[in-house]
Design a protein around this nucleic acid. Sequence first.
DNA 1: GACAATGTTACAGT
DNA 2: CACTGTAACATTGT
Length: 310
Amino acid sequence: MPELPEVHTTVTGLQKSVVGLTIKDIWSDMWSTSKLARNTIKDKTYFPYFKKYVLNQKIISASRRAKYILINLENGFTMIIHMKMTGHLMYGNYKQNKKYNGREWSWIPAGIDTPLHDPYNRHIHVVFTFSNTKKGNSQLAFCDSRKFGTIVVEKTSTLHTERLKHLGPEPLEKTFTENNFKVRLLLSPKRSIKTVLMDQTIIAGIGNIYSDEMLHRAHIKPTRTPKSLKKNEVSLLFKAMKHVLTQGIDFGGDSMSDYRNIEGSRGKFQTKHLVYLRTGEMCKTRGCKGIIKKQKIGGRSAHYCPVCQK
DNA sequence: GACAATGTTACAGT
DNA sequence: CACTGTAACATTGT
């Protein structure tokens, strides 16, 4: 599931591919009448409004805030994309030549001749078509098997003071120091540390995978509270947080399940997991004979070593 | 056909 | 009031 490193990887890809291009067409079939879909691209009555602000606009930049992808347009509006659990973007060409749900499909990444037949790339629900490339029309597809993902368009100037104002600081900013970290955690002194790390209003961008991995590397049990952490534990966790998120980015994100980069291929952080989805397996900490345990914390499954995480 | 998956939010409870 | 916990919601694959 896309967290900070995956969203970062996607945005880096967008910066290399779609910045400078003009959107000439938008197609979607991700319609929903649920109230969560209201005022998003999934709302059929919102779609014409969305098109009005996005069609014929040039993309001037792409950036990330928390787990949101921000695609800035020339007219002073921004497309805000959240991939939720199973969403990802792909740049290339949509080509129909393989059966799925009675329809023929496959995806041809830009610059590659052979189409991908990765089943996780088949749930394409939104397609943006560009016009001003030398090679002809290229496309950006939003692919999301669960259809939880969200796309909206909004005025760029008020984005950070309105819709995104609830978000905590960016953990990888150089200005985010160990002391900031401690102060933020202590805003929720008595909740479990894992829940606090994943709270987007405390710190932005951390989800289930990376919270499990950073707590393990800091040897802290996910049920501990921020208040109970000793100074050196806060310090260890701070370093583990920076390390794990940076490593996630360096490995192109985590593709344990369905995340794909904009070329439609997998990241490699899953090879670095020490605890996430390793329930029942041996702890990899040197000298530790613990067996990785799974436990529900705050309605989410936490994975940790009961021996070396205190 | 119940259940699990997770980010987000609304609401109930302490 | 301030803070914390829980459940619901979106959807699909198992």
